[in-house]
């Protein structure tokens, strides 16, 4: 095969891997079951609650191996195949164990033009792993992701489907990694509109301590 074909079309998953979680671990608590009941009540059919239930399962177990998907499906009383189809379609459901902190660096074109790939390369060098890999201590995974909807504060990243970190620079990444190593997740940051800078003292929300406004982006060095 020529090196022209860079993207293999299909890689088939192992359909019956060894379970990661034991039968004893595979239970929802009463509170979680109650939560799932409220999800069910929000929709006319139990199938519709599958996305929220998978989110809950992922928060509990960290990722979604087949046995966890089966647990979610059984709890809702829907076929395993439906839940498995959904879990494998959406990218934010992790099918494999990830690092404690997944650094989703946006590399879509607004960020690409403003240094998104520079940030990925810097993280790779700093953590000594490649994009898509996890550090040996299990702390960090780096992923280049598609547009996260924060183009005005590019380059930016998201920490494990949670808080956004805006206006990245190498210094800011150093600080972020140190903070995460110390167990401190970044806070919710409010992005102030440039039109507000004069009026509201630069912040519209008194419940958000940290604020950012789009800064003049750096010149990108790498583009892929």
């Amino acid at each position: 095969m020529s090196d022209f074909i860079k993207h293999p079309v299909v890689s088939l998953p192992d359909r019956a891997p060894e379970p990661v979680f034991s039968k004893k671990e595979l239970v929802f608590t009463e509170a979680e079951k109650e939560q799932i009941e409220t999800f069910r009540a929000q929709y006319p059919t139990p199938e519709s609650a599958v996305m929220k239930t998978l989110w809950l399962a992922q928060e509990k177990f960290g990722f979604l191996p087949p046995e966890v998907i089966r647990l979610a499906a059984d709890t809702l009383g829907i076929p395993f195949s439906l839940a498995y189809g959904v879990a494998t379609f959406y990218t934010q459901y992790y099918k494999a164990q990830q690092g404690k902190y997944v650094l989703d660096v946006c590399t879509c074109f607004s960020c690409q033009l403003c240094g998104g790939y520079d940030m990925v390369r810097y993280l790779e060098e700093k953590l000594d792993i490649r994009e898509g890999e996890t550090t040996e201590d299990g702390l960090f995974t780096i992923q280049g992701v598609e547009c996260l909807g924060a183009c005005g504060t590019a380059p930016m990243l998201q920490v494990t489907n949670g808080p956004y970190v805006h206006n990245l620079s190498r210094e800011k990444l150093d600080a972020l990694i140190d903070a995460l190593k110390a167990g401190k997740k970044p806070p919710f940051v409010s992005v102030t509109l440039p039109q507000d800078e004069d009026d509201l003292g630069g912040n519209r929300r008194s419940d958000a301590e940290a604020t950012e406004v789009g800064q003049t982006p750096p010149a990108a060095e790498t583009f892929e």
Binding site: L113, C151, G152, T153, A154, L193, P194, G214, P217
Partner: peptide
């Protein structure tokens, strides 16, 4: 939403 190579990117 103005982004990319401008001095003051953001939502206006």
């Amino acid at each position: 939403g103005i982004s990319g190579h401008v001095e003051r990117p953001g939502v206006y």
